[in-house]
């Protein structure tokens, strides 16, 4: 599976330092193997956002301020957001484990301080993943995104770390077979 190159959707806007326990409260970690169930509770721990997941239309875009996803290493944080139907996350910056988890899952996330500052909740956005550009149709604005290093691009294009590991395991087996 490869991610679609252009994504259009309505925006949900969140603040700075939203930690993983707010993205998906730890009590729902019992659903670690169930993306749909996790999705129902996404962002539930953010004060004032109770019941948020039910309002999401599949394809919506989540935009956040700095240090999004700080806290725990639990991969259920990006999984819950994806499970809620969010097609793409854009943030001013990410906490490192959330960032790796999303990249490893092949889930598109973008870093754009300009978008985080310029976008308001409800804005109609179009994101060109290849070009790294966010277009805001509501405000007639356009924001650049920070480019990924080539290895991360490769991972995202392949669909994440799983196909990458499969390929590497296959290479190793072939190598072992030849010996």
């Amino acid at each position: 599976m490869t991610a679609p190159q252009v994504i259009r959707g309505r925006t949900w806007k969140f603040g700075a330092n939203i930690d993983t326990d707010q993205i998906i409260p730890a009590k729902y970690a019992i659903y670690s193997l169930d993306e749909k169930e996790l999705g129902k509770h996404a962002m539930e721990g953010v004060p004032g956002r109770e019941g948020w997941a039910a309002k999401v239309t599949p394809g919506d875009i989540l935009v956040a301020d700095s240090n999004f996803g700080c806290g725990s290493s639990r991969e259920i944080a990006p999984i819950a957001i994806r499970g809620a139907g969010i097609s793409l996350v854009i943030a001013d910056s990410y906490a490192r484990i959330f960032f790796r988890n999303a990249i490893n899952m092949g889930y598109p996330i973008l870093q754009s301080p300009q978008a985080a500052e310029g976008v308001s909740e409800g804005d109609d956005l179009e994101v060109d993943l290849e070009a790294g550009i966010v277009r805001n149709f509501t405000r007639g604005d356009e924001y650049p995104c920070e480019p990924f290093p080539s290895f991360m691009n490769e991972l995202i294009h392949m669909g994440g770390l799983v196909p990458w590991v499969r390929k590497r395991l296959q290479e190793r087996r072939q190598l072992a077979g030849r010996r």
């Binding site: 290493s73 484990i97 988890n101 770390l161 799983v162 590991v165």
Partner: peptide, 9 residues
């Protein structure tokens, strides 16, 4: 700290 896909890798 790493995620679960990382750990699987």
């Amino acid at each position: 700290g790493i995620g679960s896909t990382d750990l699987a890798c």
